[in-house]
Amino acid sequence: MEWLYVLMPIAGVKIFWPGLIILGVGVGIIGGFFGMGGAWMVTPGLNILGFPMAFAIGTDIAHMAGKSLISTMRHGKFGNVDYKLGMIMLIGTVVGFEIGAQMIMWLERLGSVEKVVRYLYVVLLALIAWMVFHDINVKKKKEAKMVAAGGDAKDAVGVEWHKTFHAIKIPPMMHFNEAGIYCSMWLPVFVSFLTGWLAGILGIGGGLIRMPSLIYIVGCPTHVAVGTDLFEVAISGVYGAGTYTYKGRTELVAAVIMLVGASMGAQVGAVATKYIKGYGIRYAFGLAVIGCIVSIVLKLVAKAQNIPILDDASTAVVLATVSSLSLYILLRFIAGCKKELAEIAAKG
């Protein structure tokens, strides 16, 4: 079975290459579906495959750049990417990320902040999970009211916090056609600055924060939030791939092998958004966030109480989340394809 292992030229370790492809497919499907890079899912997976930690982040970012680029193109063809909004948000993301990164270095000089950052991350993720499930709950209540009144519950929506933000009319006001919103240019700039700042402080890509912010604060429909977020991930990913490789921290052979699975998986994830309504995506996203919270909490407890088994449990939670979510999306994709093909056959 020697042929199933490939020697990584830079890292100098033998890796089970089908494992890289399977991991790539899983995170590709999730990335294309939710519009995020998914570093929190990839790094533990690479570790399990025997990848040295020094190369895990760079390799992850490199593969992320390729898969986000192709799924942005796919979402773009569906009209899910608001490029104007993406470009404007890029300004805030860059400035916010830089300030956040500088701030965390300043805090590190003052003392250990790692634990604080981890706790902040958990609180933030808990807030996001609450927002998502509260939104779904509100929608269900509205639907029930509409049905009770004898109306059609099809157009029921959950929370509409974005309307409050849209009412703030600081010039210049802008139309974002794909997103179907009209608001002050400063709203997306401010939101992207805030999410970029948080990403810089937490040392993450930011897709996990940006996607819900685009929905709940900027007011994008779910599908446009997914596509526009991927556009940002693609741009920062290509640059991140370059900068990490320049520092010698990318195992390009592994990134390419992963990318074979991830780019195809990302297309499946992107097309699957056709078959799942906006609120279905939000619900699955909420579950992904909960999986992320549980894994971080387990890691925190493992470190604080010195219980190594909890560290393994954390990795197991991440892998279980990736497997179950990607399987769910894949099954919905297959069911949607079957239905669409049956409809085409019935028409023709």
């Binding site: 490199a62 593969h63 796919r74 490789t245 010698g248 780019s263």
Partner: peptide, 25 residues
């Protein structure tokens, strides 16, 4: 040269992504 290696990465990664993504399409 990490610089050439980085440039190669920045060219190769999007290319591979687009090739296999287009194949999936």
């Amino acid at each position: 040269s990490h610089l050439y290696f980085a440039l190669l990465t920045m060219a190769l990664i999007p290319t591979v992504g687009v090739i296999f993504g287009t194949f999936a399409d």
